[in-house]
Design a protein around this nucleic acid. Structure first.
Length: 112
DNA sequence: GCTTTGACGTATG
DNA sequence: TCATACGCCAAAG
């Protein structure tokens, strides 16, 4: 296990239930700014059996990264909805469920 | 070694 | 909102 891999896994595991984070945010949190693709690559080779909230990782746009209609795509949407996250057309409104967005809202004391 | 290939991101029009 | 261009870098061939 590479050091970077471990950090990426740790960053993903740190996403609270009911929230989502982007590949870029995960990479940055893992100390690898600008390397979102590395996160995607890693998840692509991650065994299904691994206990990891991989479904909470989305593109910066809020889009599910997996090919629409694929098995993984449906599984991800299913898991997200199971946590109360709204998924519409393979997209999650980051304004409400994005981890960073919610942190900002908390800091500014704005309503959700 | 060089080229291609990604579960990506930002800038620009 | 959609498309294109470019940056990024580890793996695989």
């Amino acid at each position: 296990m590479q050091e970077n891999h471990a950090r990426v896994y740790a960053a993903i595991a740190a996403i609270p239930r009911g929230r989502v984070a982007s590949y870029g945010a995960i990479a940055a949190r893992a100390g690898l700014p600008g390397r979102a693709r590395l996160v995607g690559k890693l998840l692509g080779q991650t065994p299904e059996g691994m206990a990891l909230p991989w479904h909470r990782v989305l593109r910066a746009s809020g889009q599910v990264a997996l090919p629409p209609g694929s098995r993984g795509f449906r599984e991800q949407c299913r898991r997200l909805r199971a946590e109360g996250i709204e998924v519409r057309n393979g997209r999650v409104p980051l304004s409400r469920f994005g981890l960073d967005a919610n942190l900002d809202r908390a800091l500014w004391g704005l309503p959700g």
